[in-house]
Amino acid sequence: MMKAYPLLIEGLQVIIVLLGAPLMVGWVRMLKCWLQGRQSAGPFQPYRDISKLLIKDIVLAENASWIFRFAPYAVFGATLMAGSIIPIISVDLPLTATADIIALVALFAIARFFTALAGMDIGTAFGGMGSSREMMVASLAEPAMLMSVFTVSLVSHSTSLSHMAHTVMEGTLMLRPSLAFALMAFVLIAIAETGRIPVDNPATHLELTMIHEAMVLEYSGRHLALIEWAGMMKLFLFSSLGIALFFPWGIAVADEAMMLPVALIALVAKLALVGLLIVLIETRLAKMRIFRVTEFLGSAFLLATLGMLSYFMLE
């Protein structure tokens, strides 16, 4: 029983990631509808969307190569791999040690790389535009992300995710401006990486503003389902990564099966709050011009750097 426990919990986490991600997106959409005075389709609509796409036939562009057909699987695989590494329900998952936070960022980078390639594969103007913009956003987000990671690892003396979560959980409660700055930077980066307003709008198909949607415009059927699903998981994972790094209280520690229900409830509550935050931000802000993203991510970099500086200067 004790042997099987880590495997069980790992399996449980993968299922939670797979099934929780559409639910979270559904929750966000529902809240948004409420806030904007529209009628919502309920939190389960994303499940229906995915299952509909999965049974639909595929229409492929004439010159789509194997890259185009392989990309959805690579994107989905890399994202799910990331999902099995982040401590979402338990800090001591067997797989958390396989990759630290830098490798985790690289896993998301694989997904992005293949999506961008798929965007270039058909040879339409939209696809190339999306790839170019996506890689621009990513290249600006990366230094900020590293700086934010640097700041958190200064506090925890580690880049291993479970160690980082442990340090914050068990450390004495102390006001740390560095962590606050890192958190703010992380929020900005997460918004940019998951393609939410004000950087990208996941609901738009207007050519001037599309980033992510432009790359995946030519997808259909199960390919589209996988890409959409991976996108939802990405939102879910960035939210839970933020939770694990900055608000880990409630995540189960070690081999205590009793902690799991508590951890689950805490997770649902925290993610619901994150969803609310996203909706508030998205309702309040308008999408920014594409070249304002430089300043947006520049501010993220600034905040993360201030976090690093204030660790040395003030703590």
Binding site: L175, P177, S178, A180, L302, L306, L309, S310, L314, E315
Partner: peptide
Amino acid sequence: AQINSVLAALILLTAFGLLVQ
């Protein structure tokens, strides 16, 4: 002292905010 550090950090943040706004 901790609260003061946080305030110092916030003052620094606002100083940058003035530059960015």
